[in-house]
């Protein structure tokens, strides 16, 4: 039997990550946007403007919930209270799906608010698979998990990240959110072939793509979400689109956020990479060194990987 593409989820088209700076624009102009992704943690407890705006948007646009605190790989117990809140918001806004990351965010009751990488071996794989099953039971829906950008790898790993992610998705029967920028960032940082990574992923499990900008620090890349998508990432996207037959695509822009039309225009560029033919670039391995393709920054003061999207008060 042919596997069902996108785990049976619809291709929502080209969406944008909802950020508070765009609230006034979105409410006023109701722009033509295919769909929005929201950071779950900013809304599950909100009784104020964030939740009000989300409810307004949910009436008009499809909504996907994307979390950063599930900590699926942590050895701490799962937070059931948090999971119930996720479910209740997902039901209320009729979220198309709920996603988070293949990572851990903290241990010993702490939350680093970072997406920390796991060593990839049998023990961690079984741990994650078991927890995905529990989460799917509580949420009563299939979970979708994203590959994170990472800056370290562990000597204890016995498999590549792509193999881990692929086996995890098959064994836990979950969906995948493929962040092509993260694949690129990690491929440079850890010196692997990003195109081979794509080949190792079960294409029919890819429910969604992420696109974002990154920062080149010379010795490594950082997933800063603060700029346009770079050419090598677009080329990866082209191949990912080809392998999967297309899936909902979302642009993340979390620092130095420009006006909404610029962010939206960036994701609309994805249409240029949906042609069936691979460009000549794509047949080359993408393991060019950090210095090769963009300006090198030497300061780290403004380069935070996966910048936090927090909610701040509006006061008269």
């Amino acid at each position: 039997m042919m596997p069902i593409p996108r785990c049976g989820h619809p291709n929502l088209g080209l969406g944008v990550g909802l950020r508070t700076v765009h609230f006034p624009y979105l409410l006023r102009h109701q722009p033509e946007v295919d769909w929005f992704e929201v950071i779950s943690e900013n809304f599950i407890d909100s009784h104020g403007r964030p939740r009000y705006v989300l409810d307004q948007l949910a009436e008009r646009y499809p909504i996907v919930m994307h979390g950063v605190s599930l900590s699926i790989g942590s050895t701490d117990p799962l937070n059931l209270d948090y999971l119930r809140k996720l479910k209740s918001l997902a039901d209320a806004v009729q979220a198309k799906w709920v996603s988070d990351h293949v990572c851990w965010t903290g241990v010993a009751s702490r939350n680093s608010h970072d997406l920390l990488p796991l060593p990839y071996h049998e023990q961690s794989l079984q741990h994650v698979v078991e927890r995905i099953r529990i989460v799917q039971d509580v949420l009563q829906r299939q979970l979708v998990l994203e590959n994170p950008s990472s800056y370290v790898t562990f000597t204890a790993s016995t498999m590549s990240e792509a193999e881990f992610v692929a086996r995890m998705a098959e064994e836990a029967d979950c969906g995948l959110l493929l962040d092509v920028n993260n694949i690129y960032v990690s491929s440079i940082n850890h010196d692997f072939d990003a195109f081979e990574y794509l080949d190792a992923i079960p294409a029919h499990r890819v429910v969604q793509f992420h696109l974002a900008g990154h920062t080149n620090l010379g010795t490594h890349l950082i997933d800063t979400h603060d700029n346009h998508v770079t050419d090598p990432v677009w080329e990866l996207y082209r191949k990912a689109h080809l392998l999967t037959g297309g899936a909902s695509t979302l642009l993340e822009w979390d620092a130095k956020i420009p006006p909404f039309p610029i962010v939206h225009a960036e994701v609309m560029k994805a249409r240029n990479y949906m042609s069936s033919a691979l460009s000549s670039f794509a047949s080359q391995p993408a393991n060019d060194q950090p210095q090769a393709n963009s300006t090198v920054l030497t300061s780290i003061s403004s380069t935070v990987p996966h910048p936090a999207t927090a909610i701040f008060a509006e006061v008269e």
Binding site: S112, D114, V152, T153, T155, N189, H190, T219, H220, V304
Partner: peptide, 21 residues
């Protein structure tokens, strides 16, 4: 425990997380 990369030592790589935190 932590692999080094072509351009960074293991400590430098952990520092990415420490600075970001």
């Amino acid at each position: 425990l932590i692999c080094r990369s072509r351009a960074q030592t293991s400590i430098e790589r952990l520092e990415v997380y420490s600075n970001a935190y």
